[in-house]
Structures are given as structure tokens and as C-alpha cells.
């Protein structure tokens, strides 16, 4: 079951690389959050109760509901045109994402030799989420898609931390959650400010500072 959810998560990554609409991006973020939440729920017996509550709040509350909501609001308020406007063709984008996945799987099965306790599918999908997030950031023009790419990276990192059994102390977990959340919130705030100052949210316009 968990394997199935993780594979679904991987499918969202492939879908992100071909879709051209910002609304779809945000829907996919919602789906990713939901899948991670389900993974956590099914795996829960391993965790103690306090950490369990924390993970519930983080995945269902933040990843699935609040963050997509903030983004939807921002998009509506700014009236962003819908197209994502990538630098490269959708087909090539899909090709690169697939390549990233293949490499991640090879890497995961290679590392299995050194750490038998990791779950290879988890591991591979989360590494490819981190890399796909980076790729989205590099290959898209609009700033809002950069934020989406960043959130995909964070989802990947979260999944990665689930793929290992060890737990962080609660203080640290809370700190990480708070940091990431404030970070995303701040990014959206700055995005709005950029939109009202520059009348444009292409990074092509953000080239004032050079030598």
C-alpha cells in the first residue's frame, strides 16, 4: 500500500513536468501533501504519540491544506496569467524528469548495499523529488513556479526523512517545520511585493543587480 502511494507521488512529479497551468501545479502540491499524509498514517505504529500528532499536523495541516491555500490566494490576487512559460519544451522536460528518476533508482539500489534498513522505493522517489524541484526552479520563468519547485523539494526531503527509521528530537522537528513554513510564507509575501513593484513576475525582469 505504501509502495503504491509512493509511486503515485512519483507520478505527480512526472505530471508537474508536463503541465502548463499554475492551477494544476497547486493541485498537484495538494495531492503530494495528501499522499505524504497517507504514508505517514499507514506507517504510524512505529512512532510515539507526540511525534505522531506532530506529523499529522504537518502533513495534513500544512502540506495539504495551508500551503496550497496560500498559493491559490496569491495567484488569484495577483491575477497571474495561467501559462507557466518554461524555457524548454514540455517533452524535453518530461524526458529530463524521467532521467532523474532512473538515476535516483539506480542510486537507491546502489546505496542499499551500504544501508540495508532504507526502503529503496521511498529513497529513490524522494531523491528524484528533490532533483525535480531543482529542475522546475531552473527551467521555468515565473517566480511563482519557483516557489512551487521549492515546495516540491521540501516534500521530497520530508519523504526522505520518512524513509529512514531514526527520529529527530521533537524540538528539532518543530524548528524544522516552523522554519520551512515561515520560509514559504515569506517567499509568497515577497512574491506579492515583487508583483506590485515590477508589475511582472518573470525572473527575466529581476536582472537589475549585476556587475
Amino acid at each position: 500500500m505504501i509502495q503504491f502511494l509512493v509511486v503515485l507521488f512519483a507520478v505527480t512529479l512526472l505530471y508537474v513536468s508536463i503541465t502548463g497551468r499554475i492551477e494544476t501545479y497547486i493541485k498537484l502540491l495538494f495531492l503530494q501533501g495528501l499522499f505524504i499524509f497517507l504514508v505517514v498514517t499507514i506507517e504510524s505504529p512505529v512512532l510515539n504519540s507526540l511525534n505522531y500528532i506532530f506529523l499529522m499536523v504537518e502533513t495534513l495541516g500544512f502540506k495539504t491544506i495551508i500551503i496550497p491555500l496560500i498559493l491559490v490566494k496569491a495567484v488569484r490576487k495577483m491575477g497571474v496569467r495561467r501559462e507557466v512559460e518554461p524555457y524548454i519544451l514540455n517533452f524535453n522536460s518530461l524526458l529530463i524528469t524521467t532521467l532523474i528518476m532512473i538515476c535516483s533508482f539506480i542510486l537507491a539500489f546502489m546505496s542499499l548495499k551500504y544501508a540495508p534498513q532504507i526502503k529503496p522505493v521511498h529513497f529513490a522517489v524522494s531523491i528524484s523529488a528533490v532533483l525535480t524541484g531543482l529542475f522546475i526552479i531552473m527551467s521555468r520563468k515565473k517566480i511563482i513556479t519557483h516557489i512551487v519547485g521549492f515546495i516540491i523539494m521540501e516534500n521530497g526531503i520530508f519523504l526522505l526523512s520518512l524513509s529512514i527509521a531514526g527520529e529527530m528530537p521533537l524540538v528539532v522537528n518543530l524548528g524544522v517545520l516552523l522554519d520551512i513554513f515561515i520560509g514559504i510564507f515569506l517567499l509568497v509575501m515577497v512574491l506579492k511585493r515583487i508583483h506590485s513593484t515590477f508589475d511582472e513576475i518573470h525572473i527575466d525582469k529581476l536582472t537589475h543587480l549585476t556587475d
Binding site: 521549492f150 523539494m153 526522505l160 515577497v190 511585493r193 515583487i194 529581476l206 543587480l209
Partner: peptide, 23 residues
């Protein structure tokens, strides 16, 4: 405008960097 651009780059680049550190 330029300080806004600088702030954006700062948060974004450092957040990505720091995420990689977390990986």
C-alpha cells in the same frame, strides 16, 4: 526595487542551499 530583488535572491538561494544541507 533593487533591495527587493536582493532580498528575493537572498531568501530563495539560501533556502534552497539550506534544504540541500538538510538532505
Amino acid at each position: 526595487r533593487s533591495s527587493l530583488e536582493a532580498a528575493w535572491k537572498y531568501i530563495f538561494i539560501c533556502s534552497i542551499g539550506i534544504s540541500l544541507a538538510f538532505v
